[in-house]
Simulated scan of single mutants.
Amino acid sequence: MHYIPLIARVLLTAAFVMAGGAKLAGAEMMVGTFEAIGWGQWFRYVTGIIEVGAAAMLWVKSTRLLGALLLGATMVGAIIAHLLVLGPSAVPAAVLGLLTLVVIYFERRPAA
């Protein structure tokens, strides 16, 4: 059981550093995605900063829970965007959301 939250943090960090980095770098797909959402490119930058920053927060014990909560909230937004605007599948966002729940679950318990 000790390795489950560690594996979840590794997977989340990899996914969000890549996705957030692509947003910040202006990858064509990300620019198009945020154009389709209709909130402007500033929202792409904010989302990228949140993703990369929250992924880093997963590795500091005192910020781990907050980082997971930020990533979870971001994935709720991504699921809503996929269901209402982007289509076709919100499954990747849902999987990442579930991984954030794993981290939240293990972090909410007091250390023994």
Rank of each mutant, 00 (worst) to 15 (best):
P92A: 04
L58A: 01
G53S: 01
V60G: 07
T33Q: 13
A56T: 04
A54Q: 04
G48I: 03
P92C: 04
I4V: 14
E35K: 15
M30R: 07
A19P: 10
G87M: 06
S62W: 09
G40F: 11
V95I: 15
G87Q: 11
E28C: 01
G87C: 04
V31I: 15
A54C: 06
G67Q: 08
S62A: 13
L65K: 04
V10Y: 08
P110N: 02
W42G: 14
A90P: 03
G87I: 07
G53M: 01
H82I: 06
H2I: 15
G77L: 07
A73I: 14
L70P: 03
L6Q: 13
L24H: 11
A93M: 08
V103W: 06
V103M: 05
L12F: 11
G32W: 04
W39P: 00
V102L: 08
E35T: 15
V85T: 15
L12D: 11
G21D: 01
Y3C: 00
M18V: 14
A81L: 08
V17S: 00
L65N: 00
V76M: 09
S62M: 03
G53P: 01
Q41W: 03
G77V: 10
I104S: 03
G40V: 11
G53Y: 01
L24D: 12
L6E: 13
I104Q: 02
M18H: 06
L86Y: 01
G97W: 05
G97L: 06
R109C: 03
Y105R: 01
V52M: 09
V103L: 06
F34R: 09
A54I: 03
G48M: 02
G77Y: 07
T47S: 15
A111G: 06
G77T: 11
F34I: 08
G21K: 01
L70H: 02
A22S: 15
M1W: 12
I80F: 07
A112G: 13
M18P: 00
I49G: 15
V76Q: 04
A25G: 07
F106P: 03
L12A: 11
K23M: 10
I49C: 14
R9C: 15
A81K: 04
L84F: 08
T63R: 13
